[in-house]
């Protein structure tokens, strides 16, 4: 497989490279440049310091937050108390938000990636009348702003009494036009036509070919779309904000924003500050960890989307 040009698609980069095909990597051109490295490290500081602040601030009591310097720890570490506050405030609603976020994100992402994989494969490998037209329509939808959709979707949902239910957040998140685009490009490079033909000659049905041959080849692309759909739903704020009224259905973003509004208004107890900060840290950690562990997927995925046009 490595000998065919298809395998050299950027999408297929995650696979082991053939020794006889030295596509990658140019020999490192020149010695490391110290000045360049220092300049870049200074930039990295800009990107990381706010997160450092978040970590530091979440170890402080509310009083220390105001009385000690933001980027260094206070004398007593208050992280455990803060976490306890976060998870017990309002009868532990934060835990429900965390659960909701995970549930919405996982269900939407698996659904979106599944739908996009089947469709993207069909667009790439099975030629059918109307295919190009359908694909252009789907591509055009990438440009439709979410607001133009969210408000009418809200009205439609309220007619069928779907608002203020988890489905109101999950259903719109199942569509990922960009995911279809990505999977089409990916399938183009990762599924050799000869393999499909061989399976067909053997008498396998299209569905069987898809489930037993194609899915395995598309797995890295699937994970990429899954990851991006996961992030999109995890980070979504606008949609759940308008769809949901009951705090027990909120995801983290909407819940924390509400706590922040309360603490900014100064009506609640001031302890909300350290709770909002600690809660923010808790909601950031899962995605950061996911990105660190799934590096090769999102990197090759972004490559697929960006390189091909």
């Amino acid at each position: 497989m490595t000998s065919r040009p298809l395998a050299a698609e950027p999408a297929a980069r995650t696979r082991v490279e053939a020794p006889d095909a030295p596509r990658r990597r140019r020999s490192v051109s020149g010695r490391p440049n110290v000045i360049l490295t220092i300049a870049l490290l200074a930039c990295v500081a800009y990107f990381l310091l706010p997160l450092v602040w978040l970590v530091v601030a979440s170890t402080k009591s509310n009083a220390d937050l105001f009385s000690t310097f933001g980027l260094w720890f206070a004398d007593d570490v208050n992280l455990v108390e803060n976490l306890r506050d976060v998870f017990t405030f309002q009868n532990g609603i934060f835990a429900a938000w965390l659960r909701n976020t995970v549930a919405y994100a996982v269900i939407s992402a698996v659904g979106a990636a599944g739908l996009a994989t089947a469709a993207g494969y069909a667009f790439a490998k099975l030629h059918f009348p109307g295919g190009n037209l359908l694909f252009s329509i789907i591509l055009g939808a990438i440009m439709v702003p979410t607001t133009a959709l969210a408000i009418p979707t809200y009205l439609l949902f309220s007619k069928v009494e779907l608002t203020d239910t988890p489905l109101a957040v999950i259903l719109p998140s199942l569509v990922s036009p960009f995911g279809v685009y990505l999977m089409r490009v990916y399938a183009d490079g990762a599924v050799p036509d000869s393999l499909l033909e061989a399976a067909r000659v053997d008498g396998a049905s299209e569905l069987r070919i898809f489930t037993s041959v194609v899915l395995r080849l598309l797995a890295p692309g699937f994970v990429t779309v899954l990851l991006f759909a996961l992030v999109a739903t995890w980070n979504n704020y606008f949609l759940p904000l308008i769809m949901l009224n009951s705090p027990e259905y909120f995801p983290l973003t909407v819940g924390l924003a509400q706590w922040q509004a309360t603490s900014a208004a100064g009506s609640g107890s001031q302890a909300l500050f350290s709770m909002v900060i600690t809660g923010s840290l808790v909601s950031v950690i899962p995605l950061v960890v996911a990105f660190l562990f799934l590096q090769r997927y999102w990197q090759s995925g972004l490559a697929t989307g960006g390189v091909k046009q």
């Binding site: 051109s29 440049n33 110290v34 990107f47 997160l51 992030v231 995605l287």
Partner: peptide
């Protein structure tokens, strides 16, 4: 350019804010 030390760290360090939800980023800033 291949002339950086700590390539991986730099690349990840710059990318990581993307994993922070926009709402949380706004809240934090």
């Amino acid at each position: 350019s291949g002339r950086l030390r700590l390539q991986r760290f730099i690349r990840l360090g710059i990318f990581i804010p993307y994993a922070v939800p926009g709402v949380i980023a706004a809240l934090m800033w």
